[in-house]
């Protein structure tokens, strides 16, 4: 279990909080060499082991608490920040916008799930194009199944422009700049995804710190698409249970943190599993048998702010019915409505 890598809680990183060098040495020579031990050990025992005065230990604890504790904000301030800093992005489709109560709100995690070929990736690409074209923002597209297609983006763009401006001359330059705003990452396993997000978080952090040279890619990053999280994470489960859950939760915590502190939208695409009735309660109900759920299980459900489900009915080649509904949400409350949509060459309408 113990890893050899540097512990970020080692007190050598917090020398200034330890009042002076003498005390630092006393702590590091005894067994209290990490921040967590200093914060949560009994102070009388600490006093005995390190011979540091009680009042100093208290001061050190308070200093360290200030660094690590999350800062309480009054809801008034939170409200102002929310009103001024967060922004709403259109998904590029009026139907989906209406469903989401206006569009994608920055800082939230939106999950889309549906069965195969129901149009999840199409919707994601539609949103990607909308952000890159309408808002001139950057998008990172994390692709696990090579399903992102730039030619489809170009097709949607062309059809959109033709529909709006009626001139059938399209400017090549513009579509190139739009495509430049979309960065693709191929990612096939969870460890890599974690690394990617971690790196992104660090980049954003650096960007926030020195805003002088804010010309880099990440500074106008507003959306991260993960297509699809189910493919990446589902191999984790099966063997040792806790390990898989740990990695999944670590990834999701990271997502939440990035989304919240940098006001980035996360659009997460998930697969479906059909719920099987376990042999124990066969007697209870049979209608559960065909129920479709999002993959990854119960713990994952706590992650996304909004969960959208795509329903897809396919009778023959000419007749396809697609509709989208809110499965679960912290804000939107029209859970029973189904919004029908179709996929055309211009995107989703």
């Amino acid at each position: 279990m113990e890893t050899e890598e540097d512990n970020y809680l080692d007190i050598k990183y917090f020398q200034t909080q330890l009042i002076n060098n003498d005390i630092f040495l006393k702590f590091s020579n005894s067994e209290f060499n990490t921040v967590d031990l200093i914060l949560f050990s009994d102070i009388f025992r600490m006093h005995k082991m390190t011979t540091v005065a009680l009042s100093d230990i208290q001061k050190i604890q308070i200093n360290l608490q200030k660094i690590f504790a999350s800062i309480p904000i009054n809801a008034q301030q939170h409200y102002y920040e929310r009103c001024n800093m967060s922004s709403m992005f259109s998904t590029g489709s009026d139907t989906v916008d209406e469903l989401l109560g206006g569009g994608l709100l920055s800082g939230e995690i939106v999950e889309i799930f549906g069965s195969t070929a129901s149009g999840k990736t199409q919707l994601a690409m539609n949103c990607t194009l909308s952000l890159a074209m309408q808002y001139k923002k950057n998008v990172i597209y994390i692709d696990s199944s090579s399903s992102f297609s730039p030619s489809r983006i170009v097709e949607m763009y062309n059809n959109n422009v033709i529909m709006k401006s009626t001139s059938n001359m399209t400017d090549d330059q513009e579509i190139f700049t739009i495509l430049d705003r979309i960065k693709l990452c191929s990612c096939y396993d969870a460890t890599l995804l974690f690394e990617l997000l971690n790196q992104l978080s660090l980049q954003l952090e650096n960007e926030k710190r020195d805003q002088q040279n804010s010309n880099t890619y990440v500074c106008s990053l507003k959306m991260v698409v993960i297509d699809s999280i189910g493919t990446i994470l589902s191999p984790l489960f099966g063997g040792k249970q806790t390990q898989g859950h740990y990695i999944m939760m670590a990834i999701s915590r990271l997502m939440k943190q990035i989304a919240d502190s940098f006001q980035v939208v996360f659009l997460v695409i998930n697969n479906t599993v059909s719920q099987t009735v376990s042999s124990k309660d066969k007697t209870t109900s049979d209608q559960h048998k065909n129920e479709i759920k999002s993959a990854l299980g119960e713990s994952w459900l706590a992650i996304s702010n909004h969960q959208l489900m795509i329903h897809h009915k396919y009778t023959d080649d000419d007749e396809e019915k697609r509709s989208i509904s809110v499965e679960k949400s912290t804000r939107i409350k029209n859970e029973t409505k189904y919004f029908p949509f179709t996929i055309t060459s211009a995107g989703i309408s």
């Binding site: 904000i73 009054n74 809801a75 939170h78 919240d260």
Partner: peptide, 9 residues
């Protein structure tokens, strides 16, 4: 909402 204090961890 002035009575509400938010903490995020």
């Amino acid at each position: 909402i002035g009575r509400l204090h938010l903490l995020r961890c």
